[in-house]
């Protein structure tokens, strides 16, 4: 199958899933009503009457949620693909450079000590304090990992991998320590955050992370040539005239932006960054222009699908979406691994 055909099919799949996702939930809207309401937004079919409450649920509750899922999924997918390209390893993921660990640490810090230490900040940022802290944490740790990976001023990928593992372990330990001293209520919040959820979706949320995810989504595909060259090894990429140091820096910065913003609003959603690019490669090859774009689309598709499942499976209770992605992703991933040549 041609690579652009795959991308088209995935995109159409994504659109269909989004439409389904808009209807499905504790309060379900029939698909035809969803479509009518969407078409009415473009100034058509005003003569068809749809229940007013459908309109409110769709535009106030569902739409931001589905959009958030699409954005976060695309961010996780494309960053995963880019990070795997940099590390020349199909088993790498954004978490490797400390993004998730840093975000968790800072988020947990806020949850546990908000009322004690961060009163001023809390008043200033209000509801967004947690997201802000998570984003800052993601950025700081990945910056730290990147700086630690430098040898004689040049970032080394192998050092980056090891520094990432070390920083992850360190941040994980601190997170564990704070979790240990947290009280019952805080513990629930921490657990919920760590498992990931799109439940907090609002238009404000979506608008806040929109630029952080959109910019990487548009810029990262331009790195496909250097990322392909990276597969030959850093030296060979250098010899082909690629500025590998710049490539590494920008890929880390853009991935951190996208994943940091995602983690900030939705908590940690595991496995998407690892599984999506891997599946995409199996479908249509490893060339990065295709892998980056298809990973973004497929990531959005998978997360929207996972969100539907998390809302439907034990409705009216919502499962944490991180649990769904991991529960469904693991068997699929293992199946792929076992059947791979």
């Amino acid at each position: 199958m041609k690579q652009h055909t795959i991308i088209w099919i995935l995109s159409i799949g994504l659109l269909l899933t989004m439409i389904i996702a808009l209807g499905v939930g504790a309060f379900s809207i029939p698909v035809q009503d969803v479509l009518i309401l969407l078409i009415q937004k473009f100034g058509l079919m005003h003569d068809v009457q749809v229940d007013e409450i459908y309109n409110d649920v769709l535009y106030i509750v569902r739409f931001p949620r589905v959009l958030l899922g699409v954005l976060v999924g695309a961010a996780l997918g494309i960053s995963g693909a880019a990070i795997q390209g940099i590390f020349r390893n199909p088993l790498a993921e954004p978490g490797l450079i400390g993004i998730s660990a840093g975000a968790s640490l800072f988020a947990v810090l806020i949850i546990a000590f908000e009322t004690v230490l961060f009163v001023g900040l809390s008043q200033l940022l209000g509801y967004y304090l947690l997201a802000f802290a998570a984003f800052v944490g993601a950025g700081l740790t990945s910056f730290l990992v990147y700086q630690l990976s430098k040898k004689q001023g040049i970032p080394r990928v192998t050092t980056m991998l090891l520094a990432g593992i070390a920083i992850n372990a360190f941040a994980g330990a601190l997170t564990g320590l704070i979790t240990y001293i947290a009280d019952e209520q805080q513990l629930r919040t921490i657990t919920f955050w760590m498992l990931g959820s799109l439940g907090g979706a609002t238009w404000d949320n979506v608008i806040a992370i929109f630029p952080f995810i959109l910019i990487p989504l548009f810029i990262l595909p331009f790195f496909s040539k250097p990322l392909n060259a990276f597969a030959l090894g850093e030296t060979q990429a250098d010899l082909l005239g690629m500025r590998t140091d710049l490539v590494k820096r920008w890929v880390v910065v853009l991935s951190t932006m996208a994943v940091g913003a995602s983690v900030a609003v939705s908590g940690i959603i595991g496995f998407v960054g690892l599984l999506v690019p891997h599946t995409v490669r199996l479908l249509g090859g490893v060339e990065h222009r295709y892998v980056l774009i298809a990973s973004a689309v497929f990531g959005a598709l998978i997360l929207t699908l996972a969100d539907i499942i998390s809302r439907v499976l034990v409705a009216p209770i919502e499962l944490p979406i991180g649990v769904v992605t991991a529960l469904l992703g693991t068997p699929v991933f293992l199946y792929i691994l076992m059947t791979e040549e």
Binding site: P90, N228, G241, M242, E287
Partner: peptide, 16 residues
């Protein structure tokens, strides 16, 4: 190399 690039794609990289 750890990624399954096609031979044609690899040779093409020489023209990057």
């Amino acid at each position: 190399m750890s990624m399954a690039f096609k031979v044609g794609e690899i040779v093409q990289m020489g023209r990057y």
